[in-house]
């Protein structure tokens, strides 16, 4: 099972800033292992962020996003205590959802 994300969401002056760290290999499919075999691509393909159930960002990743992906974005609105959920799914169907309260 995928490891938890680390999500920070903070509201200030009517804007909520969200910073997300995901735990993922992000294999390109071009790396060779020690025996010289290509390691199959394994990477997050889609991500979605919801504020109190309303989508505030949708993203699509390719293999060029770095290992343990980082993502930061901002949206209008959001108050302390509101729920912010981030979900991702990868090309093998692994997935993860984590939720935090905005502070």
């Amino acid at each position: 099972m995928a490891d938890p994300m680390k999500i920070r969401a903070s509201a200030k002056d009517g804007i909520t800033e969200v910073k997300v760290l995901m735990s993922h290999e992000m294999e390109t499919g071009q790396r060779k292992d020690s025996s010289g075999n290509l390691v199959p691509a394994h990477f997050i393909t889609e991500l979605s962020a919801e504020h109190n159930g309303k989508q505030v960002l949708a993203a699509q990743f390719g293999t060029a996003v770095s290992k343990n992906p980082y993502l930061a974005f901002k949206f209008k609105g959001g108050a302390k205590g509101d729920k912010l959920a981030v979900s991702w799914v990868d090309n093998k169907g692994d997935k993860r959802t984590d939720e935090v309260q905005i502070n």
């Binding site: 490891d3 938890p4 994300m5 680390k6 910073k19 760290l21 735990s23 290992k67 343990n68 980082y70 930061a72």
Partner: peptide, 11 residues
């Protein structure tokens, strides 16, 4: 700002 080591700290 956003050190992936924090993921490992949790783990």
């Amino acid at each position: 700002d956003g050190n992936p080591a924090e993921l490992l700290e949790l783990k």
